[in-house]
Design a protein around this nucleic acid. Sequence first.
RNA 1: GCCGAUGUAGCUCAGUGGUAGAGCACUUCCUUGGUAAGGAAGGGGUCAUGGGUUCAACUCCCAUCAUUGGCUCCA
Length: 647
Amino acid sequence: MINITFPDGHAREYEAGVTGFDIAQSISPRLAKEVLSVTVNGNLWDIARPITEDASIMLHKWETEEGKHAFWHSSAHLLAEALQELYPGVKFGIGPAIENGFYYDVDLGEGRQITDADFETIEQKMLELASQKNEYKRSEVSKKQAIDYFGGINEEYKVELINELEDGTISFYKQGSFTDLCRGPHLPNTEFIKAAKVLSVAGAYWRGDEKRKQLTRVYGITFPKQTLLDEYLVLLEEAKKRDHRKIGKELELFTFSQNVGSGLPLWLPKGAMLREKLENFLKKVQKKYGYEQVITPHIGSKSLYVTSGHYEKYGKDSFQPILTPQKGEEFLLKPMNCPHHCEIYKSKPHSYKDLPVRYAEFGTVYRYEQSGELHGLTRVRGFTQDDAHLFCRPDQLKEEFKKVIDIVLYIFKTLKFEDFTAQISLRDPNNHEKYIGSDENWEKAEQAIIEATQEKGMNCVVETGEAAFYGPKLDFMVKDAIGRKWQLGTIQVDYNLPERFDLEYMGSDNQKHRPVMIHRAPFGSMERFVAVLIEHTAGKFPLWLSPDHAVILPISDKFNEYAKTVCSFLNNSDIRTFVDDRNEKIGKKIRDNELKRIPYLLIVGEKEAESGTVSVRKQGEGDRGAMTQDDFARFIESEIEEELKEN
RNA sequence: GCCGAUGUAGCUCAGUGGUAGAGCACUUCCUUGGUAAGGAAGGGGUCAUGGGUUCAACUCCCAUCAUUGGCUCCA
């Protein structure tokens, strides 16, 4: 007999060789039907794998990440089996589960490809194979056996993978006619998979290396129930509807022109209004925290970036230097604001008493992003950072860092990004040549970030190897209204630029000292942030950000005059309003303006004109009854005040 | 940058080897209508660009550009 300990701490005896499935069965038959994988002493196992010694276990159903992982990983094998049948001779790379589904990288061989039209056939084949209820059979093999097997069937990618594995840790999984190198865990059999969808195909370099062969990556998703697939497809539709590129066009927020250039957004009046409101909002917060606005030019001498190290690192992949009529003068479109801000810091001597100094700028920068990377407003070649550089004494670093965290959290709260995560990015300890600066400074900087986040009580994910080349950072990822993750704000510690720019301050000891720099951008960039905000709100912005607060809809053109007097009254009260005086029926005007996501529709007809009122209709909610013009103005003002109130 | 897809009116999209169509939007007229689409008429397109094949190309082929799904990258 062996002892099995459950997550809640209680233990029970089972016969040695009991499986996760058996244990689930002993708890309830229903659980046994739903359990997909099991953690045994910290390792993820198949529920069909015998447990031979004392263990603590945790059972995973579909609802858990581990459960989905096993499900989708098994589905990847099923996809592979389907592809093997449909495309004989196909060679397999890797096929992992991912956040939403799974993929398999395959080499179809010369001249063959998979297109959208083939998706349905593949789905059908997967479901056909799934219904055969084939077991996922695990076997442990020696390295030699593994290489012999895959070598024998010309699976060179698998052989390459096996060569890097240690003998004694290699396992195969076989279902139906398909055998794969795999650690597992997997479902007991294929019948769990009831619904399958091939989502897309894309090229992907073997092992992520652009010098190696490009394989075909087939993305798919599967579910234990058809209804779950249906729901997922609805979610995808919803995401499409929220796409900031689509909404940006519909609401006339921004556009692109081939004549201007790829990745260079043009902000239309309504988009510019929204952006300006965001900028003013942040300026106000920053002022409170002691920031000073500065303004710097869009170009800078190349030597500035040689000094900063950016030229060496990114120069050749960037917009190339602008040449002046005089020979030998080269200027770069600025890819970063920090060198300019360093020069501002250097423009006068600083005392330890003056620190920290905080220079903020909505600085527009230009980076030559690879053409395949451009995407709407989230990845562009010209964008405006809500940048600031804080110069402080080493002993002030942690406190200063915490204050920046406060700003970021306040912004997220105000804009209702309630679900976010923070990631601390440290350098790769095995790859120091990727970074500049001394080990000592790196350690100090990393320590300051870790302590600041701990003292703020934040839950952070730590990623090694993700730091910027000049310092560690803290990045904020938000989840939008339909659960997608976006990276927004960033706070970075930098000991290197102060060194490179020879920045100093006079200490209390009358000696020169080196300040520490913090780079920070709570929004990240205005472009990206607005894009995320659009997708988060589906274009229904909070009132204070809405390009229009209200539209006045006269019942007929007899009331256009009255509508105009209301409009100018409200405009004078700083309420952004216009009159829809088209010769249309009221129902039509309501529909059109609802679709334009105007927060309030003010209907005016005979009643309203006589009593000096407006009939208020809130977007998405309907009729709110009549109000005097004055009351409406105050109502809007108080709603905005409420949205922006602190704490 | 790499692999795949796409590019037709302001927008969303049909379409064919014989030089183009719908809905919405726009203009004009009729209608003056009370909470999500009133009616009629009209204007609008070098079918992304440049080559090639063909008697004939928006359609087939090639290249370029742009957009797009991924990969790689992201100061």
